[in-house]
């Protein structure tokens, strides 16, 4: 029966589903990034690589 089901499935819908999945993921990431992250938080994170840490001789 499983074999019959697999044979009958129209796999071309996978392409549409894939696009839908991407749009959802993109919108979620967009909302999180653009609206739900504060500017201060974002600036703080962006500055992380500029400092190697506090040296003992400084």
């Amino acid at each position: 029966m499983i074999r019959d089901i697999l044979r009958e499935v129209d796999y071309s819908t996978f392409a549409t589903l894939a696009l839908l999945l991407f749009v959802l993921a993109f919108v979620a990431a967009g909302i999180k990034t653009l609206w739900l992250t504060s500017r201060e938080e974002s600036c703080e994170q962006a500055n992380i690589p500029l400092s190697d840490g506090k040296r003992s001789d400084q």
Partner: peptide, 30 residues
């Protein structure tokens, strides 16, 4: 990492970098 270090300034948009990451990881594999 190295471009902000060499330019001595943070990346232009950290938010854009996050979008860049997720979009790239999600899209490339297809």
């Amino acid at each position: 990492y190295f471009l902000p270090k060499a330019a001595n300034r943070p990346v232009f948009s950290y938010k854009l970098s996050i979008l860049h990451f997720w979009s790239l990881v999600f899209l490339y594999i297809w």
